[in-house]
Design a protein around this nucleic acid. Structure first.
Length: 309
DNA sequence: AGAGTAGCCTGTAAGC
DNA sequence: TGCTTACAGGCTACTC
């Protein structure tokens, strides 16, 4: 599933291939009625045709194609969207929903099995991504910034990291990786993490994302529904993954068995030894629950979920 | 306001 | 074997 590293990999590949090229044709399949946002497909295609590609940027999981008239073609891959750069006349690709013909005898093919992907043609790219949090790979993203943005939240840290208004670009895979790297349990409430926790988490986030980019993204599961790069080849980061999808397998750090639970409806894999669960449910024998602790019912519910799997 | 969740979508895999 | 159900997940819209 495309997250920051997968979008960045495609951005870099496209920059090397289509920068300066002109879009000479546009065809959107009628079976992808939600693909083009804000304007009718006919208008979108008409306005895009004839435009030269002046730049390629990324913001969070958004890919931004800057056009020569100052407008921006913004693409969000969501779950299964891929951008392929193919010679005109190359064999068809499964689940192709749109084709953008270029002036170099190639075309950009938008493939998207689940049809969740969206694109916009706008005057200013920021209008579709106003609420995004900071870029995790910018120098301005520091442990203090992370703590300031996340530290006031009572939701599980896993859910907070997935909130794009807190931090832009993290998805389920890299969140699991970062939390494992930092030794933080996904159910820990964000407002219970200490300064040192946020320092480790910051490092874990940056490391996980950089590792992903260096490996050209993660391609798990079957090729059809997964991230592939502009030439159709998968990434390699799935071989480097420490946590995501490794339920039942040994933790690379301690050898213990990796476990899985649901956090905010998302599957989360973690090491119960390296990532200590939140405060225990049951007070030690003879001890009383102090009023400053979370209500017993809530703590019990949290641990029950953690034990279920 | 913040937290939690249904729905969008389709292919795969597990269960009966 | 064939059918049904659960699951995967980014994001929006909705409820509580």
């Amino acid at each position: 599933m495309p997250e920051l590293p997968e979008v960045e990999t495609v951005r870099r590949d496209l920059e090397a291939r289509v920068l300066g090229r002109t879009i000479v044709g546009c065809c959107v399949s009628p079976d992808a009625p939600r693909l083009v946002q804000l304007v009718p497909v006919a208008e979108f295609c008409r306005e895009l045709s004839g435009r030269r590609i002046a730049g390629l940027r990324r913001r969070g999981k958004y890919l931004i194609v800057d056009l020569d008239d100052g407008r921006a073609w913004v693409i969000h891959r969501r779950m299964s969207g891929n951008v392929l750069y193919r010679p005109r006349g190359a064999p068809p690709d499964d689940y192709t929903r749109a084709v953008f013909t270029l002036d170099d005898a190639h075309e950009l093919r938008w493939t998207d099995l689940r049809k969740f992907g969206t694109m916009w043609l706008v005057e200013d790219a920021t209008m579709v991504m106003e609420s995004l949090g900071p870029e995790p790979l910018d120098a301005a993203f520091t442990p203090d910034v992370l703590r300031q943005r996340a530290g006031g939240r009572s939701a599980p840290i896993k859910s907070v990291l997935l909130d794009q208004t807190v931090l832009a670009g993290m998805g389920n895979l890299y969140t699991d990786e970062a939390l494992h790297d930092a030794g933080i349990h996904p159910l820990r409430r964000a407002n219970t993490l200490k300064r040192a926790d946020y320092a480790r988490l910051h490092d874990g986030i940056v490391r996980a994302l950089r590792t992903g980019i260096a490996a050209r993204g993660s391609s798990l599961g079957t090729t059809l529904r997964d991230h592939i790069n502009v030439d159709g080849a998968p990434g390699e980061n799935q071989h480097a993954v420490q946590a995501y999808g490794r339920e039942g397998q040994p933790c690379y750090r301690c050898g213990g068995v990796m476990r899985r639970l649901k956090v905010g409806g998302r599957s989360s894999v973690f090491c119960p030894t390296c990532q200590r669960p939140p405060r225990r449910t049951h007070p030690a024998p003879g001890r009383r629950t102090t009023p400053t602790r979370a209500p017993a019912a809530r703590r019990r519910a949290a641990t029950a979920v953690a034990r279920r799997t």
